[in-house]
Structures are given as C-alpha cells and as structure tokens.
Amino acid sequence: MTAATKARRPKVKAPYLAQLDLRELVAHPSNLRRSIGDLTELRASIAAYGVWQALTVVPEDDGGHRIVAGHRRAAAAVEALEAGEWPEDQPQTVPCLVRPDLVGLTAEQIVAMLVENDQRVDITASERAAGYAQLELFGLDVAEIARRTGRKREHVQSALKLTKLGDVATAAADAGR
C-alpha cells in the first residue's frame, strides 16, 4: 500500500464493548433468521441472570444500534423486560460489541450473520447432562438447577439419568435417538 493510498483511506473506529439500552436496538432488515423460535428457556435464563454474551451491533446515524448478531438474545431480553422479569439487581441494558467498522458495509454484515449462525453447534445431550451433574456436586438440587438454567425440572431429571446409563445410551442421546 502506498502512502497516497493510506492518505485516502477513511479513519475507521475500532470495535468496542458497551452496555446498551434495549430500546436503542433494532433488528437488521437483512436478518437471515425468519423465525426466532421458542424463546421460553432463553427468556427464563435472561430473567435469572441477564444477558451474558454480547450482541454484535452497528451504530446508526440516529444514535441507535442495528443488531448484526444476537437477534434471539435481544428478543428474549425484551420479552423478559416487558413481562417484568428482568433481574432486579441489573440495569436494563445488554452487553454489545459495537462495530463502527461495519457501518455502510451491508455485505459484510450479512457475512457476519452467516458466520454467527453457520458455525454454531449446540452442546450435546451428554455434555449438558455432565454440566447438570457437576452442579449437583456443588450441592444444587434438580429444582435449583432447573431454576438457574431456565429448564424444566423434568428435563434436568432426565438429563441426570443419562449420566448413569453408559456409553451406548449417551451416544444414542447425542445422536438424537
């Protein structure tokens, strides 16, 4: 790159973390997800602990922010807030990675949405069960594990049974059988 090329290049602000008000966030018009699905468990988790994983947003000219990654988290957070389930000890904000470097780069924003969703792999049934078993070792009972994770008691009980069934049953559960 020549000195002349560098001189013409606009200054781009680096990404930064910020706590943003939910009311400042808007869905991306090119959001790849047509359905956000059932938010019940995610909403329960957010109601218990707030949002832990930052959303990725792009600043808008009006001072708001457009969501690039985290549409489900944002929707579940709004539901929890509107239902009066927001954690009392937490501000009504969510952590966001603000990406001013993506302003005006719609194609790059869509690439980010694809990468965010294509590369995601849920934990397996046995991995989740192992996590619940670890929580039991810390003295949490099924009801408390269910409350803290936003899952139903029956789900936690079934998952904990899986930890005692052996490799064949674990492999079958992980394969969705």
Rank of each mutant, 00 (worst) to 15 (best):
V94R: 02
V57M: 03
A7P: 00
V58A: 01
W86E: 04
A47C: 09
G64R: 15
G70W: 00
L20H: 02
P95G: 06
L140K: 02
F138R: 14
Q134Y: 06
L102M: 12
L81G: 00
G150A: 03
A125R: 12
G50Q: 01
L42V: 08
P100T: 09
S126D: 03
A129H: 10
P15L: 09
D62Y: 08
D89P: 05
D38W: 05
A44Y: 06
I145F: 03
L32H: 12
D38T: 12
T93P: 09
V58P: 01
A14T: 13
W52S: 15
L32N: 10
I110P: 12
R23C: 12
V142P: 04
Q90M: 14
A48K: 13
V12G: 02
Y16D: 09
A146E: 08
K11V: 12
R120V: 12
T40C: 07
Q119W: 12
V94K: 01
L135F: 09
V98N: 00
I123L: 13
A18V: 06
R9H: 04
V103C: 11
S126P: 11
L55D: 01
N31G: 09
L39K: 04
K13C: 10
L102Q: 00
L32E: 14
A48L: 06
T5H: 12
A133K: 14
T93S: 14
G50L: 01
L114Y: 14
Y132K: 02
L140A: 04
D118T: 08
E88I: 03
G150Y: 05
G70P: 06
R148L: 15
T124M: 10
K6C: 02
S35N: 15
K6S: 10
A143E: 14
N31E: 11
K11C: 02
D21G: 05
A80L: 03
R148Y: 08
R120P: 04
D122F: 00
L105F: 10
H65Q: 08
A14P: 13
V142N: 07
T5E: 15
A143F: 06
Q109R: 11
A44P: 04
E116G: 00
V78T: 13
T149K: 10
P10I: 00
H65G: 01
I46P: 03
T149S: 15
L102E: 00
Q109I: 03
I123R: 12
E82M: 11
M113W: 05
R73V: 00
R8V: 11
